[in-house]
Design a protein around this nucleic acid. Structure first.
Lengths: 119, 119
DNA sequence: CTGTATCCGATCTGATACTG
DNA sequence: CAGTATCAGATCGGATACAG
């Protein structure tokens, strides 16, 4: 579902440059939050849902699958009586932390800027 | 169109944390590329269209408006005979460069990772 | 040249209900 | 607990045509 080969308009649609490459991973409403919440260590499915309040199970599940597929997070299933699953950043996933930290830092400045505009 | 009166489930729907705050700015298919292309200095509308091949005028215009509104870029209109407009990063906008650089760096590692998976 | 207006398909997300 | 299935609404982005 990631391959979308249709209409052969441009043989080389974009330079799928590194920027776009990485943006695709952290795009979407919740992917960055998921990674961010995992930066402190492994978390379970329901913990992530609690961390990121209004995310639906469907979307969280979809993002976790995508991120797993892309090699950013790992899934550990524990066959306990109530099933338990832990998600954890891979080494590649941890590479994203500095980028997200930089983004967070800009976020603070944006919030400050917005307060100025509001007044 | 921004207000969507959601059911009063959470009085504070999300912590619109700094992460989300900034992600909203660089979200979308082309916003990061626009900022990236402006990092070297001012560019005109048509130059940006050429820089970022398959972006439509509509979307580029929409992104530029958004980014201007958010205080990330500045618009200079030159009333020449053929109209000319230059876009430029603001000081706030330049704060995004390090974040994007970090993202680009991860992008390279993701590409490397993908090649491994492909084989 | 620099946009804006319309139409339209693709994608994302949420709500709800259901399974193991 | 940890998801999946289905449906529906909202948003995004592209193509085209048009305007200043």
């Amino acid at each position: 579902m990631a391959l979308k080969m249709r209409h052969n308009k441009s043989p080389k649609p974009i330079e799928p440059c590194a920027l776009t490459q990485c943006m695709n991973v952290i795009a979407g409403a919740w992917a960055p939050n998921v990674i961010w919440m995992l930066r402190g260590g492994p978390r379970r499915f329901s913990e992530l849902r609690a961390d990121i309040p209004p995310v639906s199970a469907k979307v969280l599940s979809a993002r976790l699958s995508e991120l797993t597929e892309r090699g950013v997070i790992l899934r550990h299933v524990r066959p306990t009586s109530p099933p338990s699953t832990e998600y954890e950043l891979t080494e590649l996933g941890r590479e994203l932390i500095p980028a997200l930290e930089a983004i967070v830092e800009v976020g603070h400045k944006l919030k400050a800027q917005q307060k100025l505009n509001a007044k």
